[in-house]
Every structure is written in C-alpha cells, then in structure tokens.
Design a protein around this nucleic acid. Structure first.
Lengths: 130, 130
DNA sequence: GTTGTCACTTGCTAATTGCAAGTGACATAA
DNA sequence: TTATGTCACTTGCAATTAGCAAGTGACAAC
C-alpha cells in the first residue's frame, strides 16, 4: 500500500483557490497553528484540544512536508525520532492565521481571544528551519 | 430526505480552529471570494473557473447562510429567484482572503497576482446586506 | 410545441474521515 | 527477566462527504 500523497492539481490560478488546494481542510492550519505556538513533536500535535486522529495527523504532516510548508529533522537516533518545524513558506502563513483568529474571536462567541504575542508576531520571529 | 446541515460543534475554543470549523474546506471561501468580486447568483458561482459541483454549491450556500456569513434575498417572483450577498460577518473575512491571496501569489508559482483593488479594499467597502 | 435557462435535487459511486486496534523500537520498573 | 510504558506511527474498517451525471419545475423565447 502506498503512502504517496500525490501532487496537487490546482483548480485554478486564483491565488485564493490555489492556497485552499493546499490548506483548505479542517486540520492542516491547526497543525500550522501548533507549530507557531512552538509545538514540535507528533505527540504535541496529538495532545492539542481538537483531538486530531492519528492517521490524519500522519497524513497531513506528510502533505505539509511535500508542499514545503513544514520540515522534519531528527532529534534522536535509536529509534530515530523527528521534530517538525515551519519553513519560511509555512511561517508566512502567520498573517493568514492572525486574521482568521481575529475573525473567529469577533464572530464565534465562545472562542478565546488570541494572545497579544500572537497577534503582534511577525513571520520572521517564528522559529524556522533554514 | 433532509436538507438540514446541522449546527456546528466546535472542536475547541481556539478562534483559529473554530473558524476552520465553519470555513475549513475547499469550497466555502471560494464562494466568499466570488461574492467579494461581485458575483451574486447561483450561475455566477457555477461559472467560476474552479468548477464547483452543483450539489456542493447548494449545500455550501445553505451552510454559509445558516452560519450568518451570507444572506439571500429574492430578485424576482415567478419563479422566485434569489441572489446572495455577504453579511458584515462575511465581509469581515476580507482580510483573511487578502492574506491568503498574498501567500498564494508568493508561493504558488502559476497563480495570478491579486488585483490591487482587492488588496486595498476594506470590509466596509464591500456590498453588504444590512 | 419545442427548445432553452435557471436554480436547484436526486441517485450513485468514489474518495476521505475518523475510530479503534496493532506495531516496532526502545526505556524504565518490578 | 519479564512486564509495562512511551512514542510515532500504520492498518483495517465503517461512516461521512465529495463529485459526477442526470433529472426536475417554473418559466421565457422562438
């Protein structure tokens, strides 16, 4: 059985639609958010309150890496384990998430207000794998 | 058979995750984009280059209306036909789409550059149903 | 009367999601 | 030494969702 995720065929050349071809699902941007709040390991993502199913998590990490949005690198041998980090491309999603967070906080009554450090952060200040 | 879309159970109180509970799929924000570029009718949405399937379009219009992001109002009787427009809540998604468009244009090579009027627009300037 | 348009709905299949359980490599405890 | 636990997954399978194609009802135009 194959683990391939395949190349994305974009529905159009509209930058909004094309971005959604990469990120338009319920989980990908939640993982990106976790990376922005300094989570790095598989278990950290699993422990987030949204409760991502483990097979979906593995699949999304693979896709995000294929699309160059995140990067994984080993933090130990025996057994080899990886942590994940944002690439520049991934860190540049910060303004998108900031705006989404503002909108959610404004219109979804029970949602938390985004922390100031998050709203004031800039992509360049996020930890990024060079 | 029921046409109900059901109320959304939010996965968490994180404003990012909660926003994605409403908008985290491949089509909803494409419809919102179309409304921002002044499309109003069912056929207009169908004619967009992404080629949304008609049953998905009907379903998303229903959901977006239920969630208070768009509104429909009749433009003729016999037969009654509606056009759709953004609510304030929907128009306030403009910054999200602007940032998504910028990101897409920066990182998806074949994607168009977003028009200046779109990047410079403000939610209050969009046509909104009061 | 025939054809066309518009805004959908219905039926059906294919793909995706998500739950639960299993796996392999190791660390730690009894 | 066996036993239990953790971590990062994979696998199997059922349920949900997506998407294609065709159909429908109300009309307008020819």
């Amino acid at each position: 059985m194959s683990k391939e995720v395949g190349i994305t065929a974009f529905r159009s050349q509209c930058p909004v639609a094309a971005s959604l071809d990469l990120l338009g699902d319920k989980w990908s941007l939640v993982i990106v958010r976790d990376l922005m709040i300094r989570k790095r390991r598989y278990k950290d993502f699993q422990d987030s309150p949204e409760g991502i199913p483990t097979n979906i998590l593995a699949n999304r990490l693979r896709k995000l890496e294929e699309d160059g949005i995140i990067k994984k690198h080993p933090y130990q041998e025996k057994p080899v384990r990886h942590e994940y980090s944002l690439t520049c491309k991934g860190a540049d999603l910060l303004p998108v998430l900031q705006q989404l967070a503002l909108w959610g906080h404004k219109y979804i009554p029970e949602s938390w207000s985004p922390p100031d450090w998050f709203l004031n952060a800039k992509p360049g200040e996020l930890p990024v794998e060079k």
